[in-house]
Amino acid sequence: MLVMVLKRLGGVILTVWMVATLSFFLIRLAPGNPFANELHSLSPEEDAARRREYHLDESYSVQYGYWLWDLCRGDLGDSMKYRGKTVNALIAQTFPTSLALGSMAMLMALVVGMTTGVLAALRQNSPTDYALMAVAVFGISLPSFVFAMLGIVLFVFGARLFPLAGWESYRHVILPAMALSLPFAAKISRLTRVGMLEVLGEDFIRTAYAKGLAERHVVIKHALRGAMLPVISYLGPAFALILTGSLVIEKIFFLPGLGTIFVQAATNRDYNVVLGTVVVFSTLLCFFNFLVDLSYSLLDPRVKGSTGE
């Protein structure tokens, strides 16, 4: 078990390094430089001084060496666009917003998706089932910005339940998180339904019913455990999609999150900020996938033998 955990952690580090290296060269290959778009154009001397300051006058391999050494020490460098701000400070400033948005969306997706999925499975082939699954197709197929706009029209301009944009209180997070979570709620709902249907047909469920257990007890204690497995294995890709989906949601609701500064930095060629956010995003993602794998092997007795090694 310990060997497996260490192996997987090594894999996490390797993946993050691969992604970071690829991004390092991709963003430097893009034409333009971080000092090009400023209001007053820099004189050649100033430009040269800036380049020296950020080691941009060196060759790519030397720059890469500097950056990797800094990364190993946990220093993501200075922003090239926002002068005097370190990337670490920028990330520390914006990360809580993204974390709140992402975890809230994940939680909503899980709660809504699993409840509707179980409901649809218990009433299989009834109008409830068909209606819920039709709504789920809606949820899967619509882009999140459409949900966001619908939400704004209905709840902000219409019912005046939530504020439009910005980031002050908990009420600011609900609408964006709702818009972000809907596609995943729909997907989780379908997965839960399939999983439940499979488990409900098995012998141990019939045994449980035969023992005279209440339906609530059978469903929650016996069936749901097996039905969770496909959902858990979907959580990894879902997390990746929530991370990328948050780019759009943050843009619509003007949230000061990681996604916003990533897109801004990519268009401004703020090399260090781009790489910093990519490192944070991919670390989060890989670590989350690692946790999912771990919990999967803990929950499913069949997996233990194959990955336990």
């Binding site: 894999g11 992604v19 991004s23 963003i27 034409p31 990746a240 990519a266 990519v278």
Partner: peptide, 25 residues
């Protein structure tokens, strides 16, 4: 399996910034 875990869209975004930059020039 490894590729499943990569944050692909971020790489696509970086590729697109490269392409858009080239397009402007």
């Amino acid at each position: 399996d490894i590729l499943y875990g990569l944050p692909f869209l971020f790489l696509v975004i970086l590729i697109m910034t490269l392409v858009n930059g080239l397009g402007t020039i």
